[in-house]
């Protein structure tokens, strides 16, 4: 399944290996946060790890590998990392605001419901 080039010099292989392992472990930890933690407000902190650190590690690994193989600098992976680093905060902020807004609306509805119930005469 994996088709690597025949001869990869050690100065590429070792850093790429380290970056791949670090990035995949960090990504896994970030998504474990989604499963383990009990509240939404705690879970939202998990993907931030995998997005910032994991993406940077994988992008660096890919850049290093292709630059070493092709013997010319391959820089266009930087676009992915720049794009992800710029957009992930925006989506996290919007999701957080949506969650807070929905929770506030739910508690408001609940309070209205309760007060309506308690103000009803017991005979009704």
């Amino acid at each position: 399944m994996i088709e690597l080039a025949e001869s990869i010099p050690a100065w590429i292989a070792v850093p790429v290996t380290l970056l791949l392992i670090a990035g995949s472990l960090i990504t896994l930890i970030g998504t474990l946060c989604l499963v383990r933690l009990p509240h939404f407000y705690q879970r939202i902190h998990g993907p931030a790890i995998s997005i910032t650190f994991g993406t940077t590690c994988f992008v660096l690994a890919s850049m290093l590998y292709f630059s070493g193989l092709g013997l010319r600098p391959v820089l266009h992976e930087l676009l992915i990392s720049a794009f992800v680093l710029l957009t992930a905060p925006v989506s996290a902020m919007l999701l957080m605001r949506a969650a807070v807004y929905r929770d506030l609306r739910n508690t408001h509805k609940q309070a209205q419901h309760d007060s309506a119930k308690s103000s009803q005469p017991p005979s009704a």
Binding site: Y41, I49, A88, P89, A92, M96, R97
Partner: peptide
């Protein structure tokens, strides 16, 4: 400021 705070794991900007 919001981008920096949201990129830092452990803090999320609400409003």
């Amino acid at each position: 400021l919001s981008c920096i705070i949201n990129s830092t794991p452990g803090t999320v900007w609400v409003e």
